[in-house]
Computed example of a mutant assay.
Amino acid sequence: MFRVVGNNISGVGVLDKAVLILTACVDGASLAELVEHTGLPRATAHRLAQALEAHRMLVRDPRGRWHPGPRLGELSNATPDVLLTAAEPVLAVLRDQTGESAQLYRRRADERVCVAASERSSGLRDTVPIGSVLPMSAGSAAQILLAWEPAEAVLPLLPRCKFTGRTLAEVRRRGWAQSVAEREAGVASVSAPVRDRTGRVIAAISVSGPIERFGRRPGERHAMAVIRAGQRLSGL
């Protein structure tokens, strides 16, 4: 039996059980699945799920499956984003070290969103405004955001991608990605992963600019600076 059991147990029984319920509902769960995933008695799982639903921390779909509720998002939005707060100075340093525009991307389903950026002050540059939505099918940041995903999550996307599974394997091996005119003609980029405390890739940090400055092997010039920037943002 698979159970959602974490290493961090507070000792407050009802709280620990409620967290188990919330964790089990991330992708949706019926009452039977809650019992299976948490190991809790059926009556306990049902009572806690109903209580969390009353507080809008869970909601039920038409099939009766519980999902994360709106209150969780409201609480999350009220909390400063630690990664974005830390990213601003790190991106500025990366921009100054490389002389190129720097960006931070997060994945959103089959897209990636630029959530922070630091632009060159002059000269040719690749401007990616904060909030820009770009495809997961091209670009070094997309490669980073897919390279460490499980195969079953990546394979359906690959037919639409301008890179291959072999490319992603190489990204995993060396720890960084590069692209040359992959997303946009005349533009090159280099990206590295940003990881959470468990080691999961949660974002991609990048530099991008014109090919005439980056060359056809931009990773040779900028990979180490981008990797170090990603490491500074990891584990927050």
Rank of each mutant, 00 (worst) to 15 (best):
N77Q: 15
G219R: 01
A203Q: 02
D81I: 09
V171L: 03
R200P: 00
F2C: 11
P193I: 04
A151V: 15
R197F: 01
D61W: 09
R166P: 00
G235S: 03
T98D: 05
L233N: 04
L145T: 12
V19L: 11
R232H: 12
A51R: 06
S140G: 08
V207H: 04
V5A: 15
V19W: 04
G69F: 06
L58E: 01
S189V: 06
R125E: 08
V113W: 10
V180T: 09
H46I: 04
D81M: 07
S101F: 03
Q178V: 09
E212G: 02
R183N: 15
T127Y: 14
E220M: 03
R221N: 04
A54R: 13
V113D: 10
L34G: 03
D126H: 14
N7F: 13
E33P: 05
M1Y: 15
E220R: 01
P210V: 01
V201Y: 06
P150Q: 07
A18M: 09
I9Y: 07
R120E: 12
A116M: 13
P218G: 00
A177V: 10
T79H: 12
R95Y: 13
V180A: 05
L124K: 14
G235E: 03
L158M: 15
R228E: 10
A204I: 03
A169D: 08
P62F: 11
M136P: 09
